[in-house]
Amino acid sequence: MTGQADTRRYPGIGPAARLAFAFLYAPLAVVVAYSFNSGPIVSRWEGFSLVWYREVLERSDVRDAVWVSLRVAVAASAAGTALALLAALGIVAMVRRGSPLAVGFLSTPLLVPEIVTAVGTLSFFVLLDFERGMTTLVLAHTAFCIPFALLPIRARLAELDPAVFEAASDLGASGFRLFRRVTLPLLVPGIVSGALLAFIISLDDYLISAFVAGPTSTTLPIFLFGLIRRGASPLINAVSTLLLLVTVAVLTASYITGKWRKPK
């Protein structure tokens, strides 16, 4: 504690930290500010207007991309969270039997370079002769959502008193009833938090989506990238700002539910 306070008092730490924050947030500030620009050129401010937001709402290609992204994110975060829950319960059983590998296996995808995962997933679909489209998109997103959904679920499991499960068993609960009446309610905060996190990870993904999406399943990030290659337009800023808004809202919700301890 005192050590931390001391470092913070070193000369230059304050300005350096402010600079780092500026680096982090300046691009976001520019995107948000210019989304309200009335002119068509990204680099010149011509006055406040909501014209680009109107265009977002009116353009059908934007709406299509949003719709694809939402469907994929909902499906993949739901499936990914369900699988993560099963994995978490499996890990508990494996740890009880003393296997040190369980956690590692499921967490390494977080560290593998995304491009490797993208190439791998694509090769996998080609090998199985899958046609690229919504299905491949959802499958690929489900796979990379699992380790993210797993994080809060495992954090929740770790803070629970294992005696609670033993008490349930002692009182006559077993099998599915034990899961539904005890395990599930105890894990709800972790599950909700994990699902929200997975939703955002899916919504924001570009690289893997670009590899496995088909021509009729353009997600929002792929669409934005396409737009930018045809020249920057303030429309991108408006879409990005909306995406940012959704991300911040969902991540805040995820953080709050993850910390949620009070019983209902």
Partner: peptide, 14 residues
């Protein structure tokens, strides 16, 4: 047989 656990192990959500 039933057990009274040292940590009580009550169900916090009930």
């Amino acid at each position: 047989v039933n057990t009274v656990f040292q940590s009580y192990a009550l169900f916090p959500f009930l």
